[in-house]
Simulated scan of single mutants.
Amino acid sequence: MAKKKKEPKRITRKLLNKYRLVILNEDTFEERISFKLTRLNVFVIVTIGSIFLVGFTTVLIAFTPLREYIPGYSSTALDKKANDLVTTADSLRTVLTINQQYYSAIKQVLEGNVETVEFDIDSALQAQKVNPEQVNLQPSEEDIKLREEVSKEDKYSLFEKEKESAGFSFFPPVKGSVTSSYNLKEKHYAIDVAVEKNTPVKAAAAGTVIFAEWTSETGHVILLKHANDLITVYKHNASLSKEQGEQVKEGEVIAIAGSTGSLTTGPHLHFEIWRDGFPMDPQKFIDFN
Rank of each mutant, 00 (worst) to 15 (best):
M280C: 06
E133K: 14
I210E: 04
K284Y: 01
V248N: 02
E142S: 11
N289Y: 12
Q244P: 00
Y182D: 08
S140N: 12
N289P: 05
K18M: 08
L85A: 15
K185Q: 11
S140A: 06
V233Q: 04
K242M: 04
T76C: 06
K36S: 07
L125V: 13
Q134F: 13
V86T: 13
A194M: 07
E164P: 03
V86M: 14
Q247K: 14
F171I: 06
K197S: 12
T260H: 07
R39D: 07
I61H: 05
L269V: 03
F285P: 00
I231V: 10
T57F: 00
F52T: 14
K9Q: 09
K175S: 12
S177H: 05
F211D: 02
K155L: 14
E142V: 10
L263R: 14
R67A: 00
Q128S: 11
E31A: 08
V174N: 05
E272P: 01
Y19C: 06
E148W: 10
V193N: 03
K6C: 01
V44T: 05
A127L: 11
E26T: 13
E30V: 09
Q283M: 14
I273C: 03
P279Y: 05
H188D: 08
K155P: 00
I191T: 14
V248I: 01
I70F: 09
L60S: 09
E160P: 01
T116G: 07
I254Y: 05
I70Q: 04
V130R: 10
I106S: 02
V109K: 03
D281A: 04
S157V: 15
E7T: 06
G277N: 06
L85W: 12
K225H: 07
F43C: 09
P173C: 02
N289S: 14
K202I: 05
I144L: 15
E160L: 15
V233H: 01
K3E: 10
A105K: 09
E118Q: 07
I106R: 02
A238S: 13
N83T: 01
S34E: 11
S169N: 12
A127T: 13
E133S: 10
D84E: 15
D281G: 03
R67V: 01
D276A: 15
Q108G: 05
G261I: 06
L92T: 04
N183P: 04
F271T: 06
F29P: 00
A2I: 00
I106V: 14
V248R: 03
R39W: 09
E68Y: 14
R20Y: 10
I45E: 08
T265Y: 12
N113R: 12
T260Q: 10
E30G: 12
S239P: 00
K242W: 03
E164Q: 13
S216W: 07
K242D: 02
V46L: 09
N41P: 00
Q283A: 14
F211S: 01
P173S: 05
W214R: 08
I45C: 07
H188P: 06
A89S: 15
K145Y: 10
S104R: 15
S262I: 10
A124C: 04
L146C: 06
T199W: 02
S104K: 14
E68C: 03
I106F: 03
V117Y: 11
E115W: 06
V209H: 02
M1R: 02
I222E: 02
S75C: 04
V135D: 01
A62P: 00
E213V: 02
L53T: 10
Q138W: 12
K185V: 08
D287R: 08
K4L: 11
V195E: 02
V59Y: 09
K129Y: 09
